[in-house]
Protein backbone atom coordinates (compact mmCIF):
# COMPACT_ATOMS: atom_id res chain seq x y z
CA UNK A 1 0.00 0.00 0.00
CA UNK A 2 3.01 2.24 0.58
CA UNK A 3 4.11 1.68 -3.01
CA UNK A 4 0.56 2.13 -4.26
CA UNK A 5 0.32 5.54 -2.58
CA UNK A 6 2.99 6.89 -4.96
CA UNK A 7 0.38 6.95 -7.70
CA UNK A 8 -1.94 9.26 -5.75
CA UNK A 9 -1.83 13.02 -5.47
CA UNK A 10 -0.05 14.44 -2.41
CA UNK A 11 -3.31 15.12 -0.53
CA UNK A 12 -4.71 11.63 -1.11
CA UNK A 13 -1.38 9.89 -0.51
CA UNK A 14 -0.37 11.49 2.78
CA UNK A 15 -2.55 9.53 5.19
CA UNK A 16 -2.18 6.03 3.65
CA UNK A 17 1.55 6.60 3.16
CA UNK A 18 2.10 7.42 6.84
CA UNK A 19 -0.08 4.50 7.94
CA UNK A 20 1.51 1.96 5.61
CA UNK A 21 4.98 3.14 6.68
CA UNK A 22 3.97 2.66 10.32
CA UNK A 23 2.55 -0.78 9.53
CA UNK A 24 5.79 -1.83 7.87
CA UNK A 25 7.78 -0.35 10.77
CA UNK A 26 5.81 -2.15 13.50
CA UNK A 27 5.79 -5.41 11.54
CA UNK A 28 9.58 -5.29 11.09
CA UNK A 29 10.06 -4.47 14.78
CA UNK A 30 7.87 -7.42 15.77
CA UNK A 31 9.71 -9.78 13.46
CA UNK A 32 13.06 -8.63 14.84
CA UNK A 33 11.93 -8.35 18.46
CA UNK A 34 14.40 -10.91 19.80
CA UNK A 35 17.36 -8.97 18.48
CA UNK A 36 16.37 -5.49 19.63
CA UNK A 37 18.19 -3.61 22.36
CA UNK A 38 16.85 -2.36 25.73
CA UNK A 39 13.82 -0.07 25.72
CA UNK A 40 12.97 -0.78 22.07
CA UNK A 41 12.64 -4.48 22.87
CA UNK A 42 10.47 -3.63 25.87
CA UNK A 43 8.21 -1.50 23.66
CA UNK A 44 7.89 -4.18 21.02
CA UNK A 45 7.88 -7.47 22.89
CA UNK A 46 6.99 -7.00 26.53
CA UNK A 47 3.46 -6.67 27.78
CA UNK A 48 2.57 -3.42 29.45
CA UNK A 49 -0.67 -2.58 31.15
CA UNK A 50 -1.78 0.70 32.69
CA UNK A 51 -4.70 -0.81 34.57
CA UNK A 52 -4.21 -3.95 36.64
CA UNK A 53 -1.08 -5.75 37.66
CA UNK A 54 1.93 -4.76 35.71
CA UNK A 55 4.68 -6.89 37.00
CA UNK A 56 6.76 -7.18 33.93
CA UNK A 57 10.24 -8.45 34.42
CA UNK A 58 12.96 -6.05 33.47
CA UNK A 59 15.07 -7.85 30.94
CA UNK A 60 16.91 -5.06 29.22
CA UNK A 61 20.03 -6.39 27.69
CA UNK A 62 20.02 -9.57 29.74
CA UNK A 63 18.52 -11.93 27.26
CA UNK A 64 19.59 -10.55 23.96
CA UNK A 65 21.26 -13.84 23.11
CA UNK A 66 18.23 -16.01 23.82
CA UNK A 67 17.31 -18.45 21.10
CA UNK A 68 14.35 -17.50 18.97
CA UNK A 69 12.25 -20.38 20.23
CA UNK A 70 12.88 -19.61 23.88
CA UNK A 71 12.10 -15.96 23.39
CA UNK A 72 8.94 -16.72 21.50
CA UNK A 73 7.85 -19.08 24.26
CA UNK A 74 8.57 -16.48 26.92
CA UNK A 75 6.69 -13.96 24.86
CA UNK A 76 3.64 -16.19 24.69
CA UNK A 77 3.81 -16.84 28.43
CA UNK A 78 4.01 -13.11 29.08
CA UNK A 79 0.97 -12.56 26.93
CA UNK A 80 -1.00 -15.21 28.74
CA UNK A 81 -0.21 -13.72 32.13
CA UNK A 82 -1.64 -10.30 31.46
CA UNK A 83 -4.53 -9.39 33.71
CA UNK A 84 -7.71 -8.72 31.78
CA UNK A 85 -6.21 -9.62 28.42
CA UNK A 86 -8.73 -11.15 26.07
CA UNK A 87 -7.11 -14.09 24.35
CA UNK A 88 -8.97 -17.07 22.91
CA UNK A 89 -8.56 -20.24 24.88
CA UNK A 90 -9.10 -22.91 22.27
CA UNK A 91 -9.23 -26.58 23.32
CA UNK A 92 -9.61 -28.10 19.90
CA UNK A 93 -8.31 -26.58 16.66
CA UNK A 94 -10.55 -28.73 14.46
CA UNK A 95 -13.67 -26.74 15.46
CA UNK A 96 -12.39 -23.30 14.38
CA UNK A 97 -10.95 -24.77 11.18
CA UNK A 98 -14.28 -26.43 10.32
CA UNK A 99 -16.24 -23.23 11.03
CA UNK A 100 -13.82 -21.24 8.86
CA UNK A 101 -14.01 -23.76 6.01
CA UNK A 102 -17.78 -24.07 6.20
CA UNK A 103 -18.09 -20.26 6.24
CA UNK A 104 -15.94 -20.08 3.12
CA UNK A 105 -18.11 -22.79 1.56
CA UNK A 106 -21.26 -20.92 2.59
CA UNK A 107 -19.88 -17.77 1.00
CA UNK A 108 -19.00 -19.62 -2.21
CA UNK A 109 -22.44 -21.20 -2.35
CA UNK A 110 -24.12 -17.84 -1.67
CA UNK A 111 -22.12 -16.29 -4.52
CA UNK A 112 -23.37 -18.99 -6.89
CA UNK A 113 -26.88 -19.96 -5.78
CA UNK A 114 -27.83 -17.20 -3.35
CA UNK A 115 -28.51 -17.26 0.36
CA UNK A 116 -31.94 -18.91 0.43
CA UNK A 117 -30.70 -22.29 -0.77
CA UNK A 118 -27.16 -22.10 0.60
CA UNK A 119 -28.36 -21.37 4.15
CA UNK A 120 -30.01 -24.76 4.85
CA UNK A 121 -27.02 -26.47 3.21
CA UNK A 122 -24.65 -24.66 5.56
CA UNK A 123 -26.74 -25.36 8.66
CA UNK A 124 -27.05 -29.03 7.72
CA UNK A 125 -23.33 -29.34 6.96
CA UNK A 126 -22.40 -27.89 10.35
CA UNK A 127 -24.83 -30.06 12.28
CA UNK A 128 -23.71 -33.20 10.45
CA UNK A 129 -20.11 -32.36 11.37
CA UNK A 130 -21.23 -31.80 14.97
CA UNK A 131 -22.74 -35.33 14.89
CA UNK A 132 -26.24 -34.18 15.73
CA UNK A 133 -29.15 -36.59 15.15
CA UNK A 134 -30.65 -36.53 11.64
CA UNK A 135 -33.99 -35.31 12.96
CA UNK A 136 -32.27 -32.20 14.37
CA UNK A 137 -30.33 -31.69 11.14
CA UNK A 138 -33.52 -31.69 9.08
CA UNK A 139 -35.52 -29.49 11.47
CA UNK A 140 -32.77 -26.91 11.94
CA UNK A 141 -31.87 -26.82 8.25
CA UNK A 142 -35.53 -26.08 7.56
CA UNK A 143 -35.43 -23.38 10.26
CA UNK A 144 -32.43 -21.85 8.44
CA UNK A 145 -34.39 -21.96 5.17
CA UNK A 146 -37.34 -20.17 6.82
CA UNK A 147 -34.99 -17.56 8.30
CA UNK A 148 -33.49 -16.84 4.88
CA UNK A 149 -36.93 -16.62 3.29
CA UNK A 150 -38.07 -14.19 5.98
CA UNK A 151 -35.14 -11.94 5.06
CA UNK A 152 -36.15 -12.31 1.41
CA UNK A 153 -39.67 -11.14 2.24
CA UNK A 154 -38.69 -8.09 4.31
CA UNK A 155 -35.86 -6.77 2.14
CA UNK A 156 -36.12 -4.77 -1.05
CA UNK A 157 -33.85 -7.07 -3.07
CA UNK A 158 -33.93 -10.81 -3.34
CA UNK A 159 -31.78 -12.84 -1.01
CA UNK A 160 -32.27 -15.85 -3.26
CA UNK A 161 -30.30 -14.67 -6.31
CA UNK A 162 -26.71 -15.80 -6.68
CA UNK A 163 -24.68 -12.90 -5.27
CA UNK A 164 -22.01 -13.14 -7.96
CA UNK A 165 -23.74 -15.09 -10.72
CA UNK A 166 -27.11 -13.40 -10.43
CA UNK A 167 -28.60 -16.87 -10.85
CA UNK A 168 -32.24 -16.68 -9.92
CA UNK A 169 -33.41 -19.43 -7.68
CA UNK A 170 -36.77 -20.95 -8.42
CA UNK A 171 -39.17 -19.40 -5.95
CA UNK A 172 -39.81 -21.72 -3.00
CA UNK A 173 -43.51 -21.05 -3.47
CA UNK A 174 -43.34 -22.21 -7.11
CA UNK A 175 -41.52 -25.34 -5.98
CA UNK A 176 -44.20 -26.13 -3.42
CA UNK A 177 -46.91 -25.51 -6.02
CA UNK A 178 -45.10 -27.75 -8.53
CA UNK A 179 -44.74 -30.47 -5.91
CA UNK A 180 -48.43 -30.30 -5.09
CA UNK A 181 -49.39 -30.42 -8.77
CA UNK A 182 -47.11 -33.41 -9.40
CA UNK A 183 -48.53 -35.32 -6.45
Amino acid sequence: MFRGSIAFSEEAAQFPRILSALTIGFAVLLLARNYLPGPIRAFVAEPYQLVGDNEVEDEFGDDADETTDDAAEADTEDDENIAGAYVYDVDDWVGPAVVALLSLGYMAAALVIGLIYSTPLFVAAYLIWAKRPWSEVVILAFAGFVLAISFDIITIRSVGDGIWTGWQAPSPWDQIRLFLVMH
Partner: peptide, 22 residues
Protein backbone atom coordinates in the same frame (compact mmCIF):
# COMPACT_ATOMS: atom_id res chain seq x y z
CA UNK B 1 -1.77 0.41 26.86
CA UNK B 2 -4.96 -0.35 28.76
CA UNK B 3 -6.12 -3.55 27.14
CA UNK B 4 -3.21 -5.86 26.72
CA UNK B 5 0.38 -6.79 26.13
CA UNK B 6 2.82 -5.65 23.53
CA UNK B 7 2.34 -2.04 22.50
CA UNK B 8 3.77 -2.66 19.05
CA UNK B 9 1.11 -5.33 18.43
CA UNK B 10 -1.64 -2.98 19.61
CA UNK B 11 -0.40 -0.09 17.51
CA UNK B 12 0.05 -2.35 14.49
CA UNK B 13 -3.56 -3.49 14.87
CA UNK B 14 -4.83 0.08 15.17
CA UNK B 15 -2.80 1.36 12.25
CA UNK B 16 -3.88 -1.61 10.10
CA UNK B 17 -7.50 -0.79 10.93
CA UNK B 18 -6.98 2.83 9.86
CA UNK B 19 -5.20 1.69 6.70
CA UNK B 20 -8.18 -0.39 5.62
CA UNK B 21 -10.34 2.73 5.56
CA UNK B 22 -8.04 4.32 2.98
Amino acid sequence: IVTKGSMAKGLLAGVAGLLITT
